[in-house]
Amino acid sequence: MTINKTLNENKLTVGIGGRLDTVTAPELEKELNDSLEGITDLVLDISELDYISSAGLRVLLSAQKTMNKQGSMTVTGANEAIMEIFDVTGFVDLLNIQ
């Protein structure tokens, strides 16, 4: 998994690539926990993401809940396979996917 962070004042863009599964999810969770302070606009760019497991979905949900309190979160660039996972798991209703 690769994580690229771009901070622009209160807007944080996080690019996530590779596999987001049980092994790599804790890494992303730690990265997000450490950098969400004071952020009002979080963009998760997952155009390079190949796979997401339930552990990965948990991290996205957790970030969404944090951002609900302090601003907004957007998920962009989901490919077809990941979009299907969002669909099946009902995450399309929970996340702001563009």
Binding site: L57, L61, D87, V88, T89, G90, F91, D93, L94
Partner: peptide
């Protein structure tokens, strides 16, 4: 068919 979100998400 269209699913609901997972339990305990919101």
């Amino acid at each position: 068919y269209r699913h609901s979100p997972a339990v305990a998400t919101m």
